[in-house]
């Protein structure tokens, strides 16, 4: 009795300590800026409440819908690629021999270890048929110059490829970890029952890492809607051949820093927040992410 009563508070305290650091950072860099953005979005530069004025005003901007259409198309490609290839690669990785697995995991993760901007600069070189090591392939596809490769119609796919290259490695490693969590006995039993590799993946592994996939989807939607660096850098490198408001985040940046209109910028970021939240809620409820096992 006596030992339990002294033990419990200590465990609780340790829990607070672990969560504390994260909570402080979350408040400082997540919650407070969000609240500030919502406040900015509902007011004008004289501090008056303007209701939804900033939202309707930015919505009426001729750049608003194209930016969201661009990001929508990009998200379709990006989420599809992420879902299919990350899961596929992780399952394949899991089936490999131990030593090859370690090497491959390292290789998959490597691009993600490069700082974001640097990895995009790598792509700028890769995409220029005059400098690229894969120039013959680009020329075979009919692209003779950087401006031909970055034609507006190619952009969503190009950004998807760049994002996949930089970001998917980390997720493959996470999924691999999730696959390792599946009890060996379950897989063994399935094999004894005569399950093929395909059936094993489809009927056992995939359902058992479903929550991880859902978690990845939520974060990928949030990160994907905030696409900024890729179009911004490609635009600068191509002397502005891509619109400076290609993605909603870029448009918000234009509002804030070209037009000195932080309230319009905040309205667009709140739009993005709502979009991310709606997607997250849908995914959470459709996949039962928060259900307890």
């Amino acid at each position: 009795m006596a030992t339990r009563s002294t033990d419990r508070p200590r465990r609780v305290n340790a829990g607070y300590l672990f969560v504390g650091g994260y909570t402080v950072l979350l408040l400082a860099f997540g919650v407070l800026p969000t609240l500030y953005a919502i406040w900015l979005a509902l007011t004008n530069s004289r501090g008056q409440l303007v209701g939804l004025g900033n939202f309707t005003r930015t919505f009426a901007d001729p750049r608003f819908l194209p930016a969201f259409a661009n990001i929508g198309l990009y998200l379709v490609f990006w989420l599809a690629a992420l879902l299919v290839f990350v899961v596929l690669l992780a399952i394949m990785l899991h089936g490999r021999m131990r030593r090859t697995t370690a090497t491959l995991r390292f290789l998959f993760y490597l691009p993600g270890a490069l700082a974001g901007v640097a990895s995009i600069v790598v792509w700028l070189i890769l995409l220029d048929p005059n400098a690229s090591p894969v120039a013959p392939l680009l020329k075979l596809l009919g692209y003779q110059s950087l401006s031909a490769t970055i034609a507006p119609g190619n952009l969503p796919v190009l950004f998807m490829i760049i994002a996949f290259w930089t970001g998917a490695g980390g997720w493959i490693v996470v999924m691999y970890g999730a696959l390792n969590n599946i009890s060996h006995e379950v897989l063994e039993a399935a094999r004894i029952d005569g399950a093929t590799v395909w059936q094993l993946a489809w009927r056992i592994q995939l359902p058992m890492i479903g929550k991880w996939v859902a978690y990845m989807l939520i974060l990928a939607v949030a990160a994907g809607t905030q696409l900024f660096m890729e179009p911004q850098l490609v635009s600068t490198a191509s002397f502005g051949q891509i619109s400076d408001s290609w993605s909603p985040n870029q448009l918000a940046y234009q509002y804030a820093f070209a037009a000195n209109d932080f309230h319009g910028a905040a309205a667009i970021s709140v739009d993005l927040l709502l979009l991310g939240l709606i997607c997250a809620v849908v995914v959470v409820f459709r996949t039962g992410l928060f259900d307890r096992d």
Binding site: L42, N44, R46, Q48, L49, G51, L52, G53, H263
Partner: peptide, 16 residues
């Protein structure tokens, strides 16, 4: 409702 109705103008060029 009060917050959303607002009273000021959202036009950034007014008064500036």
């Amino acid at each position: 409702a009060f917050v959303l109705a607002g009273c000021g103008s959202a036009d950034p060029n007014v008064g500036g």
